[in-house]
Design a protein around this nucleic acid. Structure first.
Lengths: 130, 130
DNA sequence: GGAACAATTAAACACATGTTGAATTGTTAT
DNA sequence: ATAACAATTCAACATGTGTTTAATTGTTCC
């Protein structure tokens, strides 16, 4: 351990910080962000968030698209196994919900916060936040 | 590739989704979330976001704490090398800024969106979003 | 029942990521 | 200049993560 041997350098600030960390569900929060921290998964959420205007016939409100595993696999150019894997993760974190319909399984967003989360992220990225 | 061989199953929805993905800086967004997706890094941001009320003497407004690498290493129980590594990442993404003061280097939050981003995350996590 | 197809799961692999200890750089004090 | 100490960088290692192919499950149609 290369940690400083001299002393706790700024005890007051440290105490404050500890207090802030104490109550926070840090693990869960990081886990959520980790789930979002993959381009394919963010892409899935973004795609599912895209509103389909003149519903072709599968009409289901206008709160977001509904896509099957096949669609997503083609959309991102990966195997459906990979997509399935990602979807399982997203589902475990209540970010998407699934609904079987015949041979296919359709996925849709399951959380109203996700869109806001993304827009905040965009804000940061747009402002040159590398 | 196990991808569905039959056809593009839902062309309209796919077209919409493609449009939504087209404009979005997906890579950057995911990168940002990936940076936040580590407990130590989220912890650092949370710690730096904690407001130190009765400034002991290092007074610098009330918009957040200022901690040196040593403090953070002790706070999370890892080597200062590890902390330094994380800080470099956070800095590269304009999430923190640094300021040298004598032998030490102090870090502080560098972005006003971060707090909001976190609060959105908390919202989700609190609501049982596993 | 069996065939066809979408979805999931399992096993295995390549690659990225976080950590460490050692070496290096930067700053202050003697 | 040398010593002391904080911070960073380097090299190396252990562990995670995303992907693939293959096998399995679920559903529809014949």
């Amino acid at each position: 351990m290369d940690v400083c041997t001299q002393s706790a350098l700024h005890p007051e600030a440290l105490r404050e910080a500890r207090a802030a960390l104490e109550g926070a569900p840090l693990g869960r929060l990081a886990e959520l962000f980790k789930v979002l921290g993959d381009p394919t998964r963010s892409g899935i959420l973004l795609a599912l968030g895209s509103t389909v205007p003149d519903g072709g016939g599968e009409g289901e409100g206008s709160s977001g698209a509904r896509l099957c595993v096949c669609d997503l696999a083609e959309l991102f150019g990966v195997s459906s196994a990979a997509i399935s894997h990602h979807l399982r993760l997203l589902k475990a974190h209540r970010l998407v919900r699934s609904r079987r319909e015949g041979k296919m399984v359709f996925y849709a967003l399951d959380d109203e916060h996700v869109a806001q989360l993304f827009s905040q992220g965009f804000e940061h990225v747009k402002e040159g936040g590398r």
